[in-house]
Simulated assay, not measured.
Amino acid sequence: MEIKILGTGCANCKKLEANAKEAVKELNVEAKITKVEDIKDIMKYGVMRTPAIVINEKVKMFGKVSSVDEIKKYINDEK
C-alpha cells in the first residue's frame, strides 16, 4: 500500500503525516508513506487545498487534518 501526504510542509501537513504513521502502526499494515511537497505534483491530483492524503493513487481527503481513526478507515477501504 502506498500513502502520500500532499502539502508544502506546513504544521498541518506534518500532523497529517504523523497521524498516517500512527494509523499504519495501529493497523499493522505494510505501507510506504511519502511526502509530496512540490506544488506541481500536488496539482496533478486535482487538490486545491492542503494537506491531502492519497492512498493507492486515490485522493481520500484534502483541506483538513484527518484523525488517526479516519485514516484507518481510508486504509481499510483500500485493503
Rank of each mutant, 00 (worst) to 15 (best):
E2T: 12
I3E: 02
I3C: 03
K4C: 07
K4R: 15
L6F: 12
G7E: 05
G7C: 09
G7S: 08
T8I: 15
G9F: 10
G9T: 06
A11D: 03
N12T: 11
C13A: 11
C13K: 06
K15P: 00
K15L: 15
K15V: 11
L16S: 01
L16A: 01
E17F: 07
E17C: 03
A20T: 14
A20D: 04
A20R: 10
K21D: 02
E22G: 05
A23K: 13
A23C: 12
V24I: 13
V24W: 11
K25A: 12
E26F: 02
E26H: 00
E26S: 06
N28R: 13
V29G: 00
E30P: 04
E30Y: 07
A31K: 14
I33N: 00
I33W: 01
T34N: 09
T34E: 14
E37Y: 08
D38C: 00
D38G: 03
D38M: 04
D38W: 07
D41F: 03
I42R: 03
I42Q: 00
I42E: 00
K44I: 07
K44W: 02
R49G: 00
T50G: 03
T50C: 08
T50I: 15
T50L: 06
P51Q: 01
P51H: 03
A52H: 08
A52G: 15
I53V: 13
I53P: 05
I55N: 07
I55Q: 09
I55A: 06
N56T: 11
E57T: 12
E57D: 15
K58L: 12
K58S: 13
V59D: 04
K60H: 06
F62V: 01
K64M: 11
K64L: 07
K64Y: 12
S66G: 15
S66D: 04
S66E: 07
S67D: 08
V68D: 06
V68G: 05
D69Y: 01
E70P: 06
E70Y: 07
I71F: 05
K73F: 01
K73Y: 01
K73P: 01
K73I: 13
Y74H: 13
N76Q: 15
D77N: 15
K79Q: 14
